[in-house]
Write a protein that binds this DNA or RNA. Structure first.
Lengths: 218, 218
DNA sequence: ATAAAAGTTTAGATTAGTCTAAAAAATAAT
DNA sequence: ATTATTTTTTAGACTAATCTAAACTTTTAT
């Protein structure tokens, strides 16, 4: 069984590794947990010896399958508790995080399964984040290729199909990153290009080819 | 703010001091927390320096007003959570204690007030133990002088009016202690003495004078 | 390509909570 | 009332989590 502190490090590493494919760096973890790099190095060794992460000196860490499962169970608890606080106890969405940070460390699988049932097996928390099921599976949001997105519907970038440097550089340039808000304002029939507002900025044109390689969700 | 461990020591001292008037001894605390006397001595000094208990070497500890308020707030949380687990999540009464031992240490006054409201401000937990209100006040069970108790009604000793050694020695002899089950089987009109079964033992006579000094509740 | 800067790890200390063993005090027994 | 027993405290050590400062790698810049 992990300690409160070990759970927090594992969760942090999980979140930092989400989306990205690169190893998570010591300083990133230190920053996210408001602690010092030296402290992180010690904890990294500990989690590594428990085979929850893979660690190579100076190069950062990657989470293992076992570590990911554990991290997901903590995320599940956090999001179920947030849902409980908002839906049953009438908390405001901005009041729940701190309390859920504590509640997520309660150890009782019976409790969490009964809570899940009490809440009607929700699949997303009040912030819209997906709640992993008891096996750690996250209900995949239906992703849509930006090219096929409805006009004037607020959407969020969740993935790219093409990982080539040139494409990624282009995306950075126009402000597209994972999680960015996008709105298709017009579809040009002639060449399939789109007029898109990114992060509420002025609409700009992007090519059909680019729009075929960006995935969005609600 | 107290640590998880400090809270557990304080709660234990509170429970051990309940009912009794004597100081709580080091070994009693050690036994109730499954720890060693030496460890208890250290923690006693710490709680004493925070003015939550009064400590005199070799003589044991007494809880202060401030300590009692804090202990009551932990008891309140424990019992509200137990009530939640049974009433809302359908736990069996024997499944709740361990989980409530964890939940009682969550720090959030907003959470506990909203939970209290959600549960309809209950005054007793599933075991029948009273739930202190937010000011630490416990709804006083109606106590009855044993002399006036109904015949053949199961009752429990909750206090004595007279603390003299001779009376207490007498009570010990006949098996009466705080919490003991008692049943008045007959009231002798002639001298006001009672025939009483204590802890399901054979009924025995006790004097009117004794019966006037024993308090019972349901 | 070498020097400077940035990031990471090691070394050594600190605090909270715990333990065992020995010393000290209180209680019980002869 | 002196000795024996029990209880409590002190002393010293250990683990987990943390820190600062120094040493070591890697990356960046000239």
């Amino acid at each position: 069984m992990l300690s409160y502190t070990e759970e927090n490090y594992l969760k942090s590493i999980y979140h930092l590794s989400e989306g990205g494919t690169k190893a998570v760096l010591t300083n990133e973890i230190a920053a996210s947990l408001n602690t010092k790099a030296a402290t992180v190095t010690d904890m990294i060794k500990k989690l590594s010896s428990k085979e929850l992460i893979e660690y190579e000196k100076y190069y950062g860490v990657n989470i293992t399958k076992k570590g990911k499962q554990l991290a997901l169970s903590i995320v599940r608890k956090h999001r179920l508790w947030e849902t409980f606080l908002v839906q049953k106890l009438n908390f405001q969405w901005d009041q729940v995080h701190e309390v859920a940070e504590q509640l997520e460390h309660i150890h009782s699988s019976l409790l969490i399964e009964k809570l899940d049932e009490f809440l009607g097996h929700p699949t997303a928390d009040p912030h819209g984040h997906p709640i992993p099921d008891k096996n750690g599976r996250i209900k995949q949001e239906k992703q849509v290729v930006l090219k096929d997105a409805l006009i004037n519907k607020t959407l969020y970038v969740c993935a790219v199909r093409n990982g080539s440097p040139s494409f990624l550089q282009y995306l950075s340039k126009i402000g597209v990153q994972i999680g960015a808000k996008v709105l298709v304002t017009e579809r040009i029939e002639f060449d399939g290009s789109l007029e898109v507002s990114i992060k509420d900025n002025n609409p700009q044109l992007i090519s059909r080819e680019a729009a075929e390689n960006i995935l969005v969700k609600e």
